[in-house]
Nucleic acid binder design. Sequence first.
DNA 1: GACCAGGCACATC
DNA 2: GATGTGCATGGT
Length: 222
Amino acid sequence: MDESAVGQVLREMYDRLASAYGPQHWWPAQTATEVVVGAILTQNTAWTNVERAIAVLEDSACLTWEALREVSEQSLARMIRSSGTYRIKAARLKAFVGVLWSAHDGLLESLLGGELEAARARLLAISGVGPETADSVLLYAGGRRTFVVDAYTRRVLRRHGLIEAKTGYEDIRKMFHAALGADVQVFNEYHALMVEVGKRHCRPQARCTGCPLASLPHQEQA
DNA sequence: GACCAGGCACATC
DNA sequence: GATGTGCATGGT
């Protein structure tokens, strides 16, 4: 399938999902700080487990960059225990906060600003920030035009024959960037819609019955 | 009790 | 550069 054909399918998918599910109001967070913290805590973890950890941080007045800079890594780890792999995630949060304060005076707008790919490279250089976390932060905390490719997106595209199992993150991201226009809000909604349709219909045991994308060419799960 | 969840870094081949 | 493994909780 050539690029223009793929683009057409991706736009069709968006229209169908948006019509079926409506606005998703993502990211589920009050502040940009909370988006970043949530993005790191949700790595390989269900969101419900992250919500508890965020609540503890909130109750402990630790959801500001100043507080996250001051708190010890050990205390931080205890507070985020419910999100799983908590020692690793505490170190990752500290790494992020360290870069934020050492190179950007604690200003997230500075870290996430400027030329997009340069900002993205700055994030990827932080230990614990991979492509998905970087794009989540750029899009949902920075309002930048970048697509978040997650496990659900892969499954949906794979099932519809738009990618192969081996297709890499960057290639998938480029497919969306080429297919979609300049409107950041579309990037914001599209990823959230992918998660929604993925949860409902592209989990390992889920069925295509009732899926808004079921009338597009696809394969039922084996 | 097994499997999964909105990944990533690191070791090894 | 592809593949395997540790991290670790809570829900189903």
